[in-house]
Nucleic acid binder design. Structure first.
Lengths: 146, 146
DNA sequence: CTGAATCCAGTCCGATACTG
DNA sequence: CAGTATCGGACTGGATTCAG
């Protein structure tokens, strides 16, 4: 119990100033959390349904991410005591408030993908074909809209 | 040459869909990049001046982050061939476009820090004092506004 | 001053196996 | 169905040292 249990440290010690910015940023900056929030906009989902929609996420990471979101008050976890266990996750009003500016950023990314790619190509050409070792970032799913 | 050279992979392989969202998100979600963008709003800065203002960042990470930002077209690097080398970094128009929605998110974080903390306290109380091992996120500097 | 290169601890997260 | 436990590889980023 010291690794996949809660996650989201990411930002270590800095000066003495703000703190909440680093929390939000590390929240949306991790690999999956912002996608989870995107999928949860519009409708509550059960664990495995959510797992299917995010597609590619491991249950370990989904569990940990959801717990962090629940702890921070962005997601509500509702457990139905049915015979096969059933748990529903939904965005809280607070979570929807976060989802809104977040989707703006996602939309910006979608709208400007071409510009970024062009800038990178130009940069790589300028630096003389010496490709850096930055690994190509792999695809991800669109914002939400299921 | 395979580590501090270019950074920003973070998001590995996922399905076959979007990709740009993960790029932007991993870009701003890392420990320092969004702070750098925030400091660069309003005025261009030289390397060490920027390093001083971000305060706590190592030159290795600052160098790598700046290079990634330049490559993606968000920051322009201007080298003055003076006797002590002088390099200026400034946001491009594209960079300012990114900075805007980003600052909205930062403002959201500032405005809702209390709510997040309260939610966490409530959660920790509910789960019976069994504190999770999530490390307390440390402070960071405010948005920008120099 | 502006970086590049190396060393290295701490994290993230994917795969797999097991439980109520 | 909804998790928990563990192993292991990959990546982040801090400190330090060296160079143009």
């Amino acid at each position: 119990m010291q690794e996949g249990t809660f996650m989201k440290p990411r930002h270590g010690h800095i000066s003495e100033s703000c703190r909440p910015i680093s929390e939000i940023l590390s929240l949306i900056g991790d690999k999956w959390t912002s996608l989870i929030i995107g999928r949860l906009r519009g409708e509550p989902l059960r664990f495995n349904e959510l797992k299917r929609r995010v597609d590619g996420i491991s249950q370990k990471v989904l569990t940990a991410s959801l717990r962090a979101l629940v702890r921070d008050g962005f997601v509500e976890r509702i457990e139905y005591p049915t015979v096969p266990p059933s748990v529903e996750y939904r965005l809280t009003p607070f979570g929807h408030e976060l989802a809104e500016p977040l989707s703006v950023l996602q939309q910006f990314a979608l709208d400007n993908a071409g510009r970024m790619e062009a800038a990178r190509a130009a940069y790589d050409a300028r630096t003389g074909g010496e490709k850096p070792d930055r690994q190509k970032t792999q695809p991800i799913q669109p914002a939400a809209v299921p």
